[in-house]
Design a protein around this nucleic acid. Structure first.
Lengths: 208, 208
DNA sequence: ATTATAAGCTAATTTGGATTAGCCGTCAAG
DNA sequence: CTTGACGGCTAATCCAAATTAGCTTATAAT
């Protein structure tokens, strides 16, 4: 990997751990194995490194997301998969989603960096909401609606059903980001959550 | 209000909006109506202002929490209230919880400050998890269990039921913290959530 | 071979923001 | 009435961290 990429990589790690303001240029440089002034051969400023990361994130998001059924580009294909889904398959999907989020180092570092930076910057705040709240809800909502149409799930209000599916995942995710020691427990809870979700909505339970 | 308290108040506002590192001592002072050096007549350092706020937060948490049934000190009394709860009453409780969280300026600013600071400090991270994840889950879980015993709600797994109750509230709360414009919508969603929660668990729906 | 460019280094320099020094008015206690 | 603590101010000072200057080496193109 060339120096410029290494700088981005180490900066991402540091920003995601400590936040932009608490990271020194010299710290990034040291991890890359160069001195701070040398970093300026590759980037105009510390801010420019950060901006490049945000740029990179925006470029890669669609790619990652499609891969994971978080928000989709090939909705029709995904929906077909969801049509006849057993409980175990549903659990597997939820687990894969959470575990990807948690373990993919790239996604994880970006998420943490963004969640911090979003507190200071309006644009980033919108990006955060889009990527981790609105898009997951809308995409998963679409899939779950297919399952409702197919008679696999039953509800009068699919939006709330989607919230009931995703909110616990979101909460577990943010909990693990703040305290990685909770991962094992989170995966167990996730499985129970989806199992119970499936029991709750798998029969005509919430209709009047 | 005396100067020292005003410093704390303005510092809390600023820290909660921009994060510790992005707030200047001169900024706090200006809002209070003094010059930066004068602030040092009241606090040893910028850090000391922050620490005093954390101190204050720890002191006040039990008080606030008890007031709101988030985590309790008079569990028996609260449980009695929950014994025979109509859907509307349940909705009101959820709404009150969310609206207090959202609108009480004190609670709100502390929460935002803590959620940011928690990314940099292990102790604060633990405090955040306790106050906004573990305590609400355990206290609300206790209340919901009473409702299960009383036959108002039905479930095999009250922990997951509690997660299903609280996770959407948590998600809406953090969403509103990041984007206050979502408040109105959030309150509507909350009401629908609790209504559907009540339908889902109000009958013997998730038992095998 | 020569030269230009890329990418590193050390040694400044700059800068912004926290903190200190030292002065002044007010006011309550003796 | 005077003294001393309190709380404010302006004008330094300090300092860490970002950035710039200017030198050096390697490599690749002419």
């Amino acid at each position: 990997m060339d120096t410029k990429s290494r700088i981005l990589d180490e900066a991402l790690t540091l920003f995601s751990e400590k936040g932009y303001a608490n990271v020194f240029v010299s710290e990034i440089a040291e991890r890359v194995g160069i001195k701070a002034p040398s970093l300026y051969k590759h980037f105009e400023s510390k801010k420019a490194v950060f901006d490049a990361l945000i740029q990179e994130m925006n470029n890669n998001f669609l790619k990652q997301a499609g891969m994971l059924h978080i928000q989709g580009n090939d909705a029709a294909r995904d929906a077909a998969i969801y049509k006849n889904l057993s409980e175990d398959q549903l659990i597997k999907l939820g687990k894969d989603l959470l575990l990807y989020f948690l373990h993919d180092d790239y996604a994880r570092r970006f998420r943490k960096m963004l969640s911090m930076a979003a507190y200071h910057d309006k644009e980033l705040s919108e990006a955060y909401m889009k990527h981790y709240v609105d898009d997951p809800l809308s995409y998963q909502g679409m899939l779950l609606k297919v399952m409702v149409q197919e008679g696999v799930l039953h509800t009068e209000n699919a939006e709330i059903m989607t919230l009931h599916f995703y909110a616990p995942i979101y909460m577990l995710l943010t909990a693990c980001d703040r305290d990685p020691a909770r991962e094992t427990e989170a995966v167990e809870i996730l499985e129970k959550h989806i199992r119970q979700f499936n029991r709750l909505y798998g029969r005509k339970a919430d209709e009047k």
